[in-house]
Amino acid sequence: MTAPGAGVRATARLVARDDGRGGTALPVLESDGPLALRRTRGSGTEARVMLVGAMSGPLGGDHFTVEADIREGARLRLGSAAATIALPGQTKGEARYDVRLTVADDGELHWLPEQLISAGGSDLYVTTRIDLGATSRLVLREEQVLGRAGEEPGRLSSRLVLRVAGRTVLDQELACGPGAPGGWDGPAVLAGHRAVGQLLVVRPEFADKPVTAQMLGESATVVPLAGPAALVTAVAPDALLLRRVLDEALATLSA
């Protein structure tokens, strides 16, 4: 971690590999400053890791990066201990949070962190880039909550890019909060909803048997992407209702 006047720069890294005995080893598990990675008890062939925020933030000017490299045949499940809260910093300027995930062939990653909450006055740009092999598997959840209870949100921009075998299957950006391009809270984009989330599921068998597009209640949908992936998109009045919809969707997709 380095902390020049401009903000905190921190990069946490992990590498997961098949340990050759039916389990998953973590030869690299590097925490950095506010980003702490802790191995917890796994189950079966799967290793489990918790991302624990050791400080508040990201704050304006901070730049956090998390990199996970899931090698051939390895299986990892990541969760986080608490929601991440973007806060205004003492320095002007946006904060950045980059997540880079690679999953090699026959690897599997469940990336299920807690919500990202955009507090009033904050300005955060989140980028999640995922590179998968043709036979990799993924479950990834992203939830964004605009403002703490009763609070106006900060500015939040997020980009989610999924590549499978080198081909871009999903590239999506969402910008909201004060200063975001016009209409972000209007009837085409969020219409007053304060929680928005996605569940991205990639399985090689979706190439031949894609999911059927369907509504999940009034304000969520599951769709097949143009590739071996399914995407759940949901908006909700708050974080709790959003999680309920995404949990139900995950249960349906896993059934």
């Binding site: 980009r159 890019v161 871009t168 590239d171 999506q172 950006e173 969402l174 910008a175 391009p181 009837p187 085409a188 984009v189 969020l190 219409a191 928005v196 597009a213 369907q214 509504m215 009034e218 304000s219 969520a220 949908t221 769709v223 998109t233 949901a234 908006v235």
Partner: peptide, 20 residues
């Protein structure tokens, strides 16, 4: 990759509701 990718959740969700 330099193309913008701005998205609107309710346009996506509404389009699927409408198609049904």
């Amino acid at each position: 990759d330099a193309l913008p990718s701005a998205s609107a959740p309710l346009l996506e969700i509404g389009a699927e509701a409408h198609a049904a």
